[in-house]
């Protein structure tokens, strides 16, 4: 790194510019990663929190995927999973979008009716019984609901028995209740899905069985939302590789006469390659670290007002990816060092 360090000091303006670009790209990728995870959680965290191995939904029409929005299973179909091959337990689940009326007004919610075994942990109060609900902590805070308060869902008066940890379904806070109360409040007899534990579970007639994580795609808009956000992340990483590659292509071309002199002095191509890659690595790591730190700060601020998740997967992974793709871009660019001919250091060839 003899030349690398001294070049960084000498051309600090140019390298600061590249580092700044890398920092900004890292900032965008980390923020986008946090937003992608946040939106994903807002969409499917209620499904993710289900303590089941698989979910049965109504078999979709040809060419379409299973969907919570269109799935309707009769009681007989749902009961078909009881004691079926590979099934340890089966829990019918009703899902409906509705409104809840409380002291602070009304709010759109996802009403999930199922067995208490599938509820997320109750943070305050108790597990709701007949005519009772458990609301998520964020909904309780937003609508100023407390254990013992009365609420109205589709004209049916219910009591808040418990406050659960935060979950969402299709970007709506969730209200949990038992299946009987769900049917009373929604007027729907069929259930939406069946939560299943066990392994190698075969679908019964008219259903399709998917894993819990595969069931995320059955939540409206989840797949397209995540797909477009991930595409943007991928494009940002690709653009970053191109920017780094373009910079080091120009930089290597500019210093080719110097490199020829050092080659003539006896340096091997490997010596120059190691030096150049170390230089790129320093700029990449510093730029990504600065961008990551800024993203962590902004993300922490944003998390209070928008769906944003900051964890190792949304923070360290994108920073690592940024450094990795930048290193690839730099490596492709600086490999032209191996073609530098030391003869060109002599006058007649210059």
């Amino acid at each position: 790194m003899f030349i690398a360090i001294r070049d960084l000091r000498f051309a600090r303006g140019r390298f600061a510019l590249l580092g700044g670009v890398i920092a900004l790209m890292t900032l965008m990728v980390v923020l986008l990663s946090g937003l992608t995870a946040g939106l994903g959680a807002a969409s499917v965290s209620a499904v993710e929190a289900l303590p089941v191995d698989a979910v049965a939904l109504q078999e979709p029409a040809e060419g379409q995927g299973p969907s919570f929005a269109t799935s309707a299973l009769s009681s007989e179909t749902a009961a078909g999973f009881d004691g079926a091959s590979g099934v340890e337990s089966a829990h019918p689940i009703g899902v409906a979008t509705t409104r809840i009326g409380g002291q602070a007004g009304a709010a759109a919610v996802a009403l999930i009716g199922t067995d208490a075994a599938l509820y997320p942990p109750i943070e305050r109060g108790r597990t709701p019984g007949d005519g009772e609900v458990a609301v998520t902590a964020d909904l309780a805070a937003e609508e100023r609901l407390a254990v013992g308060d009365g609420v109205s869902i589709a004209g049916v008066q219910l009591e808040v028995a418990g406050i659960t940890e935060e979950t969402s379904f299709n970007h709506l806070p969730v209200v949990y209740t038992d299946l009987g109360t769900w049917r009373d409040a929604t007027g729907i007899e069929e259930v939406t899905a069946v939560g299943l534990t066990g392994g190698d579970i075969a679908a019964v007639a008219g259903t399709v069985v998917v894993s819990r994580t595969e069931a995320f795609d059955a939540v409206g808009g989840y797949a397209s939302e995540q797909g477009s956000l991930n595409l943007m992340r991928g494009l940002l990483l690709g653009i970053s590789a191109l920017i780094v590659g373009a910079f080091f292509t120009v930089w290597t071309m500019q210093r080719t006469p110097d490199l020829a002199v050092v080659r003539a002095m006896g340096a091997s191509s490997g010596y120059l390659l190691r030096d150049a890659l170390a230089q790129a690595g320093i700029v990449l790591v510093l730029g990504a670290a600065v961008g990551g730190a800024a993203a962590a700060g902004l993300g922490a601020l944003a998390a209070s007002s928008m769906p944003f998740v900051l964890n190792a997967a949304t923070f360290l992974a994108p920073i690592g990816a940024m450094v990795a793709v930048g290193a690839v871009g730099a490596a492709v660019s600086v490999r032209r060092i191996t073609a530098v001919d030391p003869v060109t250091a002599l006058g007649a060839a210059r």
Binding site: I3, R6, D7, F10, D258, V261, A264, M265, G266, A345
Partner: peptide
């Protein structure tokens, strides 16, 4: 080259940094 040969170039060809 590194150990036994020294080169002096036209216009010195020093590295700017």
């Amino acid at each position: 080259r590194a150990q036994r040969i020294g080169f002096v170039f036209q216009q010195s060809n020093l590295l700017g940094s």
